[in-house]
Design a protein around this nucleic acid. Structure first.
Lengths: 119, 119
DNA sequence: CAAAACGTGTATTATGTAGTACATACTACA
DNA sequence: TGTAGTATGTACTACATAATACACGTTTTG
């Protein structure tokens, strides 16, 4: 049985939105991200594996979710993040392995330092 | 034509090692990483796509190369690095995108700071 | 109450990934 | 000169990925 995490999560998100707006039916969301309704239905119930990266990104926009989070739930990593690593694999490899166990707040602080150009 | 970069690189590395040690023939290296010689030959000439992550890691050990570098040349990112990102996708997504343009020395300094626990 | 919209089941497909198996042809060397 | 080792060419395969097409029964609604 393929990744239930992803399916459950987007079903919940979609149904939440549907409470306020009927255009968030399986059929209509499927139509907007350009897949067959039956496919989206199966994805949501975890009957098949999550869709491709491109479809997941469209779905994230549709549901107002973070694409990186949805991709992670689908067991994937955004190809543009992969490209960043592939440009300097040894450097980023070392950095990420060192940061594996760091607490969230420490990473967040680094994010801010880097953003503010304190390097 | 699939990724020539990777093939050329490992062919050069292997032939360099073969100058000193005849056990670095296509056949024997293929045998040690458990693939058919014809397959390794095609990989080195870029006639087929690079092998799986597992085989690339074995090849890196065999050739004394950095696995992350070889994986990058093959257009891949190590699955354990991907797992690090998938655990905290939003955080690492932001960090990596911020660091995309940072110079090597700045990243290296961060690696050292993180390693030395200055956080 | 009919027709439109809905969710789901079954069957099928195209493309890519990651190789194997075996035959052929070249090359060194004893 | 033959044989052992080497590289490469051809043909094929198993499995995964990423879906489509369409039929079916069930609400919902105008």
């Amino acid at each position: 049985m393929p990744a239930t995490q992803f399916g459950c999560y987007i079903r919940e998100r979609r149904e939440k939105l549907k409470e306020k707006d009927n255009s968030f039916s399986v059929r209509q969301v499927a139509g907007r991200i350009d897949v067959e309704p039956s496919f989206l239905s199966k994805v949501e119930r975890g009957e098949v594996a999550p869709p491709s990266e491109a479809k997941i990104v469209l779905l994230a926009k549709e549901l107002g979710e973070d694409p990186d989070l949805l991709l992670a739930l689908a067991g994937k990593v955004s190809s543009d993040l992969q490209a960043v690593i592939r440009k300097r694999p040894e450097l980023f490899g070392r950095l990420l392995r060192e940061m594996r166990e760091m607490p969230d707040h420490a990473i967040l602080r680094l994010v801010r330092e880097v953003r503010d150009g304190l390097w």
